[in-house]
C-alpha cells in the first residue's frame, strides 16, 4: 500500500454511501410509477413513492454513517461488541 493510503482507507467507506441515497430514491419512484400504472391513480402514488424514497434514502444514509462511526469507536477499544 502506498503512503498516505491511511486517510484514503478512512474515507473510503463514506465515499460510496451516496449511492444508497440514489438507490432508495430510484426504487421508491419506480415502485410508485409502477403502481400508478397498475391502479390508474395517475400522479399520487408516484408522489408518495418519491417522498418515501427520499425519506428512506436519508434514513439509510444516516444509519450507515452512524454504524460506521460506532464500529470505528469499538475498534479503538480493541474488543468486539458484547453480542
Amino acid at each position: 500500500m502506498w503512503k498516505g493510503s491511511d486517510s484514503l482507507r478512512k474515507v473510503a467507506p463514506y465515499l460510496n454511501i451516496g449511492s444508497m441515497f440514489l438507490g432508495c430514491m430510484v426504487v421508491g419512484v419506480g415502485i410508485g410509477y409502477w403502481l400508478d400504472g397498475k391502479l390508474g391513480t395517475k400522479p399520487w402514488l408516484l408522489l408518495a413513492g418519491s417522498l418515501l424514497g427520499m425519506a428512506s434514502g436519508f434514513y439509510h444514509f444516516f444509519k450507515i454513517v452512524l454504524h460506521l462511526d460506532r464500529r470505528r469507536a469499538e475498534d479503538g477499544d480493541g474488543e468486539d461488541d458484547q453480542a
Binding site: S19, L22, V26, V27, L52, G53, S56, Y59, H60
Partner: peptide, 21 residues
C-alpha cells in the same frame, strides 16, 4: 407502518445501488 415501508425500500435499494454502480 412508515418504518416498515422505509426498511423494505432499503432492502431492495441496496442491491440496486450495487448493480447500477
Amino acid at each position: 407502518p412508515v418504518m416498515i415501508v422505509v426498511e423494505i425500500l432499503g432492502i431492495f435499494a441496496k442491491p440496486f445501488a450495487l448493480c447500477v454502480r
